[in-house]
Design a protein around this nucleic acid. Structure first.
Lengths: 261, 261
DNA sequence: GAGTGGTCTAGACCACTAG
DNA sequence: TAGTGGTCTAGACCACTCC
């Protein structure tokens, strides 16, 4: 085949998804529709390739996606098995409380308790990769589902992103969406989860007793170049949310650590 | 190249790792040693391929591993950037409290509070994919680091694995290692994390007040065929451990859920 | 022994970033 | 415009599972 590989590198139109992503989405629907049954076996890679008119490599890319999301197993020697319908959230929903709430069919709410600019602490300088003496914007917000307080959110933005956030109305909902629209691109995030006793601020805002164990999520998000975009500490009332993670022997993104973060 | 692909499918000796895994491990060391600096840029895929004498595909496999573990970014157009040294744990350490504790340089301990066989509840029948009326083995153990109680672990095994566990001495440490040795293979696991108030059993065993918020981790592990191997609920004293997860826009294994699991 | 997924190669074109 | 990662193809051999 001297004149091979003519139609490769398909995504011609900008904004069009890669083939393997479309394939993965399509297979995801089939799996969720119970096409192969629960604990059913998928067709072989080769037959999928033929069926969809793509190469085996593309099929494998698609399956790797489903594998990472915990939808199917994979092992040498036998066909893949359907593990279940692990509905993981989109990256967007994970970063934005607003987007997440809406996807759950709930009404998200926000009440800004304060929003100020100040010099970064040593820890923040480290976490956000700032220069010494840099200024950050700190926003403290109470987040609601319907009218029920659920979470207290303390977010710290570096100067550039902080400037965008600082000018917003105190009742505006999604800061993440605003940043998105301003051109910021969220690419990676690191989440740390533990329990912390409510202090007096937490207790006052969330309406719980001081000392109540709150579910804490610390997030740090970076753009595609690795530049930190925000750092945030969310404290959830017990019983309001839980986090779930899928893990496989081949790729493990979860870690347990000693003590507090 | 008519006589190409002679040396493909390398792993000749059983137990030998794939090339891309070795490559990933090697690059991981270089990154952790600060070879490219923090926020430094990696060599191009092509130059890595040449340097290590492998194809670009193999290099990409290796880099995908590092990417999933949050060590490097990747985007079209520029070289990869070092994100940091996200020391994620091996799958083994994540499943076995004993293995984890030892890797932290701590002395793991276990005290069996009870171990019994009984009919599975409806929820367990569902989670472990059992037949109606199946019997499970439930083990309740207090786990320690040094002499300090840290966690109360309630594990439910289906009949087959339970038979292996049932015959162990009450002070034996790692059930996971025993199962491993018995031929069970852990391939996937699903973890759910939230906060739960200590009940009287928790309080008595862990030495905390009733109602104290405990960090709860619910795990379900399956073998490569998707067969459930165990279900467990661990309750950690506050401040003893935290969990951390890495996430990227391309593959997200973390989800936030409403309410308790 | 047949079938299947895992690994590897070689080569191609494309989209994007940056000088 | 050159360099780089993303996507896709075609083909090969191997390790493993199961009949």
């Amino acid at each position: 085949m001297i004149e091979s590989a003519v139609g490769a590198g398909r995504p011609g139109v900008a904004g069009e998804k890669a083939q393997y992503r479309k394939l993965a989405a399509s297979m995801r629907l089939e799996i969720e529709a119970g096409e192969f049954g629960n604990n059913g076996r998928l067709p072989s890679e080769e037959s999928l390739a033929e069926q969809y008119g793509v190469s085996r490599g593309t099929v494998r890319n698609a399956l790797a996606l489903l594998r990472a999301n915990g939808l199917v197993t994979s092992r040498r020697g036998t066909r893949r098995v359907v593990l279940g319908t692990a509905r993981t959230q989109s990256f967007q929903e994970l970063l934005s409380f607003t987007a997440w709430a809406r996807a759950q069919g709930e009404e998200p709410g926000a009440r800004t308790l304060h929003c100020l600019s100040r010099p970064a602490s040593a820890a923040e300088t480290e976490a956000l990769q700032l220069d010494d003496g840099a200024v950050v914007t700190e926003v403290l917000r109470l987040r609601l589902l319907g009218r029920v307080p659920v979470m207290l959110e303390r977010t710290v933005y570096p100067e550039r992103t902080g400037a965008v956030i600082g000018g917003l109305a105190p009742d505006s909902l999604s800061h993440t969406e605003v940043l998105d629209a301003s051109g910021a691109v969220f690419a990676d995030s690191e989440h740390t989860i533990d329990v912390v006793p409510a202090d007096s601020v937490d207790a006052g805002a969330l309406g719980c007793a001081e000392g109540t164990g709150l579910l804490r999520e610390i997030r740090r998000a970076t753009d595609p170049a690795g530049v930190p975009l925000l750092w945030s500490e969310d404290r959830f009332l017990p019983g309001t949310v839980s986090f779930s993670v899928h893990n496989s022997a081949s790729v493990s993104a979860l870690a347990r650590r000693r003590g507090r973060p």
